[in-house]
Design a protein around this nucleic acid. Structure first.
Length: 614
DNA sequence: ATAGGGTTAG
């Protein structure tokens, strides 16, 4: 039977067509012609070009079929292996480049510097240090280490594994380095949490670009050094303009610091740059405003978005939740479902959190029990933690304990803490002791993490003998990151206070003001309740120096324009401070908003918005 | 060819 070929097209002409990298529908027509005219057997290079074209139009599966078929008789050219590997190495968490590399070695094909760059990159995407080291060795044997790209990708791979020494070794042996080599080395130190060294290398760089700045700024953020992140963000403007990644990072720093004025400035900058207006920046803006205590501004950003995606919704829902606006959080969630958007695990976590803050047991239970069947999201440990928290806060201690005992994942410290927290809220010591008894029986590592909570529980019930008993078992395990630390933003400047630190330039003034406040509100600190981690001698000083109180003093001293003082904190508001804030809000007639980790408490006229806290 | 990103309960 004759093929339907309308006219005969020469192999040479097809080759020319393919070299122009046509679109997918044209490629398919040309592919059909090659089959119809049996050109594949006479001109093998046509298939190679065809694979090249399929890869160019991102049709990886079509390319793969052709590649696998023609591989047998004359083995494919290195270029073709490389092209296939490059395509797969663009996908993260894909082991195909390594599989292809193995097959390539088996067919006696000789890898070149391109091959190694792709394979090394995908070793970094994979979680395989060992694989990377083997490939490193092979590249060395092949004499490809002198290639700039190969060495750069090696530094990048060791950076991904936070293997600083290996990254340095490759870097030191290079004869020529570019901005990629330097940036990757900075990234290695940053991934390792050593921002001091990262900064050193960063300053030594002969040339920096926007990515180099992004690596530093995001490094500071993962290290929890938000003030430093913002200061680098400001320095950056002298050299280059921030890109989307940097903007998102800077907004995250503002969110963590509660730096509203700074965040607002960045918002203005985004409004003036079309290139920065993306779903990512909108999501980060919503999050920033919510975490700065300005849910009204978060709404404004959210409502202005024309086509809202799942991340925008997630950010808005979580924002409403930390503000204790559970009903609204559910309403936005339902609006999202009506728009046929499928929630992800974090969206569900956000809405569950909203339910637990607002005591919406029924809504929360419904979402928790149907999340897998309705949206295909398998409950993770975080969701269990949230649900246990929801049940516990609502007073269903036995039901919550039942969930913990029967859940399919091993409960972690967070879950136990949520359960014990609920016991504290409902002043149910005997139930807490039952939980502790159960935990001791299990004899697992999670017990130690709950001791702080148990001691807080005893403290809130005035059982001081029990408190010191538990504290003794805990011993000294002070984590520097957990030391009391508060921030307050006044006129665009973020002021940071730590327990017993004297670094603030106005510390003497603030101290004086604090003394005045304490006297005026008739406040007597109960030294037995604060800072058990400190020695006896330090304790009294620590009470007076407690970072949060310093921040309040500074706020009262300097917030003259508005009635409200906003304080952001990374530690649990301690009990005596809570009492102090109530008194101050009454005596000074100020509204005080405190952020405790991710939750807001508003103090107004001697009352606190959250009644479940103590 | 090689480097960088947010949304998470307590």
């Amino acid at each position: 039977m004759q093929p339907f070929a309308v006219s005969h097209i020469s192999g040479r002409f097809i080759s020319q067509l393919l070299s122009k990298r046509p679109g997918i529908s044209q490629i398919k027509q040309i592919h059909a012609q090659i089959i119809l005219q049996s050109l594949a057997s006479t001109r093998l290079s046509l298939i190679d070009s065809l694979i090249h074209c399929y890869l160019h139009s991102k049709s990886l599966s079509s390319a793969r079929i052709l590649f696998d078929n023609h591989r047998s008789s004359p083995p494919p050219h290195v270029l073709l292996w490389n092209l296939m590997m490059r395509a797969y190495s663009k996908l993260q968490h894909c082991s195909e480049p390594i599989n292809l590399f193995r097959r390539m070695i088996d067919t006696q094909a000789k890898p070149d510097e391109y091959t190694f760059t792709f394979v090394i990159t995908s070793c970094a995407h994979q979680d395989s240090v060992l694989c990377g080291q083997v490939v490193h060795g092979m590249a060395a044997k092949n004499g490809n280490l002198l290639n700039l790209y190969v060495a750069n990708s090696l530094i990048g791979m060791y950076a991904a594994f936070a293997r600083v020494d290996d990254a340095c070794e490759v870097f030191d042996k290079m004869s020529k380095r570019d901005v990629f080599s330097w940036t990757s080395l900075v990234s290695a130190f940053a991934k390792n949490g050593d921002m001091g060294k990262a900064g050193e290398v960063f300053r030594r760089m002969p040339l920096r670009n926007d990515v180099s700045w992004a690596v530093m700024i995001s490094g500071f953020i993962s290290a929890g050094m938000y003030t430093e992140a913002l200061s680098y963000f400001q320095d950056m403007f002298r050299e280059s303009n921030p890109n989307e990644a940097v903007i998102v990072c800077a907004l995250s720093a503002c969110a963590n610091l509660g730096a509203f004025d700074h965040g607002k400035w960045i918002h203005g900058y985004i409004d003036g740059n079309r290139a920065l207006q993306s779903s990512n920046t909108m999501t980060a803006l919503i999050d920033m405003y919510a975490k700065c205590g300005r849910i009204d501004c978060a709404y404004l950003v959210f409502n202005k978005i024309t086509k809202r995606d799942i991340h925008n919704y997630t950010s808005m829902i979580s924002g409403l939740s930390i503000h204790g606006r559970g009903e609204e959080s559910i309403r936005v969630f339902q609006r999202m479902l009506a728009e046929k958007l499928k929630p992800n695990d974090i969206t569900i976590l956000g809405v569950l959190n909203g339910c637990s803050h607002s005591g919406l047991l029924q809504h929360g239970s419904l979402i928790f029990y149907s999340m897998e069947s309705s949206w295909g999201v398998v409950p993770k440990i975080e969701h269990y933690g949230c649900y246990v928290d929801l049940l516990g806060r609502a007073g269903y201690l036995a039901k919550a304990f039942g969930i913990v005992k029967t859940m399919p994942i091993n409960p972690d410290v967070v879950v136990w803490r949520a359960l014990l927290s609920a016991c504290r809220i409902h002043s149910n010591l005997s139930f807490a002791e039952r939980v502790i008894g159960y935990l001791e029986q299990l004899d697992c590592g999670s017990y130690s993490g709950t001791k702080v909570l148990l001691s807080n529980l005893y403290a809130s019930l005035g059982k001081w003998g029990k408190v010191s008993q538990v504290r003794k078992v805990m011993g000294k395990q002070k984590n520097p990151a957990d030391i009391g630390c508060s921030w307050i933003e006044v006129d665009g400047v973020v002021h940071e206070f730590r327990v017993s630190d004297m670094l603030h330039p106005q510390i003497a003034e603030i101290r004086e003001k604090l003394g005045e406040i304490l006297k005026r509100v008739g406040y007597a600190a109960d030294a037995t309740r604060v800072s058990f981690d400190l020695s006896e001698e330090d304790r009294e000083q620590a009470v007076a120096w407690h970072s949060e109180k310093l921040a309040i003093a500074y706020g009262l001293m300097n917030t003259t324009s508005g009635a409200s003082i906003r304080i952001m904190k990374n530690l649990r508001t301690c009990e005596d401070c809570h009492a102090l804030l109530k008194t101050i809000s009454k005596v000074y007639d100020r509204e005080i908003i405190v952020r405790d980790r991710a939750r807001f408490h508003t103090f107004r006229q001697g009352k606190c918005s959250c009644n479940d806290y103590w």
